[in-house]
Design a binder for these strands. Sequence first.
DNA 1: GACAGATATATCGGCAAGATATATCTGGGA
DNA 2: TCCCAGATATATCTTGCCGATATATCTGTC
Lengths: 215, 215
Amino acid sequence: MAIARLPRVRENRTRYVVLGMLSTGGPMTGYGLRNSIAGSVGNFWQESYGQLYPALRGLAAEGLVTSKTSPGAPGREARIWSITARGRAELARWLELPPAMEPARNELLLKIYFAGAVAPEVTLANLTRVESAVRGMLAGYQQLDAHWEAETAGHPDAPYWRLTLDFGMTFARTALEWIERARGVVRERGKARAASPTRSKPQGAKAAARPGGTR
Amino acid sequence: MAIARLPRVRENRTRYVVLGMLSTGGPMTGYGLRNSIAGSVGNFWQESYGQLYPALRGLAAEGLVTSKTSPGAPGREARIWSITARGRAELARWLELPPAMEPARNELLLKIYFAGAVAPEVTLANLTRVESAVRGMLAGYQQLDAHWEAETAGHPDAPYWRLTLDFGMTFARTALEWIERARGVVRERGKARAASPTRSKPQGAKAAARPGGTR
DNA sequence: GACAGATATATCGGCAAGATATATCTGGGA
DNA sequence: TCCCAGATATATCTTGCCGATATATCTGTC
């Protein structure tokens, strides 16, 4: 069973979110684009002005988007961006490429890995904080789900959109289950420490080494 | 139920991985540190030389690590880095802070969200590719699990280390289940398209809008 | 003896993320 | 009516992150 090796991230992907959002949501300003992204794919994709505005200029230079300036007072001029036919083709080309895997850092896991350097209570407290945050995210997803159900009903792409929400909710629930298991492990470690009041330094273990040999 | 709002990432966290690895694995070179990180926390945390070497210099300037130069031929000198007592204190201080949440981009979800712009077959092919990659990751985790079971047995921190593997395996399995559901949704959409051969442009839907209003 | 691969240090460029500066318009309360 | 908070809109800066690459030496194997 040959394992597909997905490509790493290289290319600037802001371009494609812009093309996608202009394709799905119609013409918009850079500001509107930002809000639009935050309100639709914001749970798994973020863009800042520092990326959007240069990306829009680059896309325009390539003829993938065009802009009309809606005149206003100075400091109030708004450029309305639209996707071109070539822009749609470029979006489709990108959508066909295998999605790049994100290596994604996870600070919680890092702190768990090094948890031997602090008291179990510290780690338990942090697990509780993360649990609360995950519950908050889950509640947010559910709220969004209810909102989308009404707003997007009948749109042929709605099933795709809800699938991304499904992903978020499923992973949040999985995280909650893992946190519960992690709590058990940390508590167990606390009992072991209480029984034999050694410091963090392991002394009973003989050749037990940390994984990932040094050299 | 007050929702804990976890902090966003700001600070350079390379520092703390370095401190953690030197604390757990003993003195190492920058090169060894890199391998050590890749072999232990590499599944959820990556560091490159471009981050490690400057970080080591910074930590040394703060007195959190020290180095001894093990002499060698030019181009072969090795600096062995060790954590200091103040370095351990700094590590513990950081471990007590609530872990920052990673917003993490997900290119697969982005392509699912915009999947209406391409044929269902394209999306199905990509789902299969991702599935294969996830299966490969899962196999890697299981192999690592077996390896660690022998290597780290008896070490008091081993339960923490395995917990991070548990996380990876659990999430990989959850991803596989989601992919199966996603496949179902995409296939359903394919049937709908075949039945009414409309283009990507939705025309039947009345006021069904994309979520995340523009302005 | 040749040569691939491991050991070891170092830096560059492009992407990403958030903060911030600036200016104007809009709606609601005092 | 005035004022001001908040929304609309564009733009840039800093820091961090990630991979690629350059350089040089040592080691083991065919």
